[in-house]
Design a protein around this nucleic acid. Structure first.
Lengths: 192, 192
DNA sequence: CGCGACGTTGATTTGCCTCAACGATTGTGG
DNA sequence: CCACAATCGTTGAGGCAAATCAACGTCGCG
């Protein structure tokens, strides 16, 4: 049942026949996650790529001083992984954990490599997925380099209105690359 | 001859047989570019993806006030394109031009879509290419959000020692998201 | 109920920008 | 090939954006 959202997501870019869908389905690992649970810790090898069917994950980097930088929120219908670690086997630089109770579907790296051969359309699906992610980060990078924090906050609210009330300001501040204190000041200015 | 570097680059991720190589070769458009020449202007539709065999390109966004933000330098052996425009046909948000005289190999979008079907390995190649680019931008974004300009400058010099003396400070400043004036101050501090 | 994390507010400091002026370098037309 | 203009890199003075430090009320959770 919860596979519904998953195959719907796949169908956005490729059309699988019944046999292909079955091959893929056989390799899916459904899993519940609870708030603050960790799905990947920096330093580990990221063996799984996750699709979120319920709840919300965050992908972040931890720094020496104990601070963290969120690089992506992954609510329902998003994919989450430390891509570099997943694809090359090097230790993860990012960590992933859950911001809410929820459910994810995981695919193992070795299974996916086999699936790429059995179901070559999947190669196309992930090509398009990474292509879009590439463009998304490119856009975020331009924003980070060229606009001020209040503009970035307004755009965040416009682009992810769902997340606005779901995610704590501390997490949003980290995503925008500012301190919670400064985000609070921005919000005060915007209300007036 | 200049195709050498191109097929070497392809061979990093997939192995083409003679026939496949010929199919691909037939669709390559070699082209000389001169310094400051434009390969893509924001607003146009990006029909081509480029591979640089000689020289160096920059991909950047122009802002209303006339300023520009470089998001990527593409020296020899790199690929350049406005990925979103190339893959969806929407108008380009980025512009591309040459920082030096050089040579590029272009592939047309329609040709590539056909090639994906004739030579399915190419789907894999570009999946990996975008996967790596995805990770690269993810990393740049984290840096931009969490570190100061002098750290970013030092890392840039470490990662791209080749480019350090090839690219003007104005362009590097734009890539780092700071003003040329401030980059000059950073350099002064670092020398001492 | 009480503790700890969160959000707000104020005072102060720091990172980076703007504006402006000046040599040095590049490039361009005569 | 030279002369002049334009762009580039540097330096200094002053301003704004965002961080730090600290204090306080509130809420969620054990």
């Amino acid at each position: 049942m919860m596979h519904g959202l998953f195959f719907q997501n796949i169908a956005r870019h490729i059309q699988l026949d019944a046999e292909e869908e079955a091959l893929l389905k056989a390799k899916l690992h459904c899993r519940a996650v609870s708030k603050n649970e960790s799905l990947l810790k920096a330093g580990e090898h990221s063996k799984m790529i996750y699709f979120v069917t319920k709840g919300c994950l965050r992908i972040y980097q931890s720094h020496q001083n104990g601070e963290e930088t969120n690089i992506l929120f992954c609510p329902e219908n998003w994919w989450a992984s430390d891509v570099m670690s997943f694809s090359t086997g090097i230790p993860a630089t990012y960590s992933i954990d859950a911001l809410e109770d929820g459910e994810v579907i995981g695919i193992d790296y070795r299974d996916l490599e086999k699936l790429y051969i059995q179901v070559t359309k999947l190669e196309r699906f992930f090509r398009i997925l990474f292509q879009n992610g590439f463009a998304l980060y490119q856009n975020r990078l331009t924003l980070a380099l060229s606009t001020s924090a209040d503009v970035r906050y307004v755009l965040f609210n416009q682009q992810y209105p769902m997340l606005r009330n779901r995610i704590s300001q501390k997490q949003i501040a980290s995503y925008l690359g500012i301190t919670p204190v400064f985000l609070s000041m921005i919000r005060k200015r915007l209300v007036s």
